[in-house]
């Protein structure tokens, strides 16, 4: 199964579905969907990387944090994420965790940011996983 994402109809915010052969890849595709709302990753370079670990009570919380970090890096660090990767995922004592790597560049006066995402939400969030594929659905607040 290939990986990818698509946008679904939503009046006020943006809703998308992302998929891949594994949960890791579906998460990465969700990040790509969100990034497509914010800037054109094709014209940006990858000069730096930031690594981050998250844990939560379920995969919903992990997905939310994995995506939210992109907003934090923009606002607090002026760092534009070009690619968000899931390096490793696991579970310790019943709590899932995730190790991620964000690569991108520092924002400068020339970089064009074309859309604002205010927050990642649990609204209609759905994570579907079986042997052959993983599909996630996310609504972000615009």
């Amino acid at each position: 199964m290939e990986r990818g994402y698509e946008f679904l109809k939503h009046t006020a915010d943006a809703k998308f579905r992302a998929w891949g052969p594994t949960l890791e890849e579906a998460f990465e595709e969700a990040a790509s969907a969100m990034l497509s709302l914010m800037w054109d990753v094709r014209i940006l370079s990858r000069t730096r990387t930031v690594e981050k670990e998250f844990e939560g009570k379920d995969h919903h919380q992990l997905l939310l944090q994995f995506l939210e970090e992109i907003l934090y890096l923009l606002d607090a660090r002026s760092f534009l994420v070009v690619q968000a990767q899931v390096v490793e995922m696991g579970e310790t004592k019943g709590r899932p965790w995730l190790r991620s790597r964000y690569s991108g560049m520092m924002k400068n006066d020339e970089t064009v940011v074309h859309g604002e995402v205010k927050a990642v939400t649990y609204s209609e969030m759905d994570i579907h996983l079986d042997d052959a594929k993983a599909v996630v659905q996310v609504v972000v607040d615009l």
């Binding site: 939310l64 907003l71 606002d75 205010k118």
Partner: peptide
């Protein structure tokens, strides 16, 4: 309230979830 307000909402949604 810009990113500060958005983060407060996200932070407390998470804390209340937990």
């Amino acid at each position: 309230s810009r990113g500060l307000g958005h983060q407060v909402a996200s932070d407390y949604i998470r804390q209340m979830e937990n």
